[in-house]
């Protein structure tokens, strides 16, 4: 693992997120930026995937349960070579294949359509179950928002995953602490998140979502864990990398204007130069 390379790639993913949302004039930059490092790690380090053969049967699967962070998934897939980075500028445009939320029918590399919160994790559980039923050894990853886990279906899926011993499943919670209406603990607190997943019989690992050593360590431990699914609770910064978006609920679902876009790209340019 070349950490500096991963950091550079994640920074490119962030540029793609900001550019896509700017051109779309709508979308969700905050949670996309907070999850960019983990998605970069998954697609550039962890997962068995092939951009030339996006539907190969034995591939690892990823389900973006927090589907509104499609810009992060699309930017990661584009930078990984599934489709041209330039196409990110068509996000949410009429006629573009880059739909506002992940669309598996039209976007190379998208393993599951999602967007209605709480549903992606169930599909990921179904994929992990399919692997077990077929004696296949692929793994399944799903990324959830910390606001998303207010949905009851998340806990239905979690109960089932542990009951069926789906140790090929990794649930990642992007714990940036903010949802549209404010701080998650003020809106309807899901805390203690770690204890909840422990109570649901998961192997639980807490990490800093922006530290590639911790990310790497967590996914390695997940792979070694047998008999139970793993939950990685990743403490993150919403809007990470763009100064004025960091830790701001206001940037959950808003596009930057031209001036803000320039500032955001300048912030990311500075990070690039520091690497």
């Amino acid at each position: 693992m070349d950490i500096n390379n991963l950091k550079k790639t994640a920074n490119e993913v962030r540029k793609g997120i900001v550019t896509a949302v700017y051109n779309a004039k709508s979308g969700h930059p905050g949670g996309s930026l907070s999850s960019a490092d983990i998605m970069t790690y998954l697609y550039f380090e962890e997962m068995n995937i092939d951009p030339a053969d996006p539907k190969k049967a034995d591939r690892d699967r990823f389900v973006l349960s927090k589907g509104h962070c499609a810009p992060a998934l699309y930017s990661t897939l584009a930078n990984r070579g599934f489709f041209p980075v330039k196409d990110l500028e068509t996000l949410r445009h009429t006629g573009s294949y880059l739909q506002g939320h992940p669309d598996m029918k039209h976007i190379p590399g998208v393993d599951m359509s999602s967007g209605s919160l709480g549903q992606g994790i169930s599909a990921a559980v179904g994929m992990a179950l399919a692997a077990k039923l077929s004696n296949a050894d692929y793994r399944v990853y799903t990324l959830l928002g910390d606001g998303e886990i207010q949905e009851g279906q998340v806990w239905e899926a979690s109960m089932f995953a542990a009951a069926k011993k789906l140790d090929n499943l990794v649930v990642i919670v992007d714990n940036n602490g903010l949802q549209i209406d404010g701080k998650i603990e003020d809106v309807n607190s899901p805390y203690p998140i770690v204890d909840k997943f422990k109570a649901f019989n998961f192997n639980v690992i807490e990490i800093d979502a922006h530290d590639f050593n911790q990310i790497d360590d967590a996914f390695k431990k997940a792979k070694e864990t047998k008999g139970v699914p793993t939950a990685i609770i990743a403490k993150s910064i919403k809007g990470k990398g763009v100064s004025f978006m960091e830790n701001s609920a206001g940037w959950h679902g808003k596009a930057p204007n031209a001036e803000e876009y320039e500032t955001a790209m300048a912030d990311l340019k500075k990070i690039e130069e520091s690497l």
């Binding site: 049967a57 598996m104 179904g126 692997a131 009851g152 899926a157 109960m159 089932f160």
Partner: peptide, 20 residues
């Protein structure tokens, strides 16, 4: 799947996406 119909439908979607 136990008494959890919404999750059951989602699991079925995942199973179908994986070829079942």
């Amino acid at each position: 799947c136990g008494i959890a119909e919404c999750n059951m439908v989602g699991i079925a979607a995942g199973l179908a996406a994986a070829g079942k």
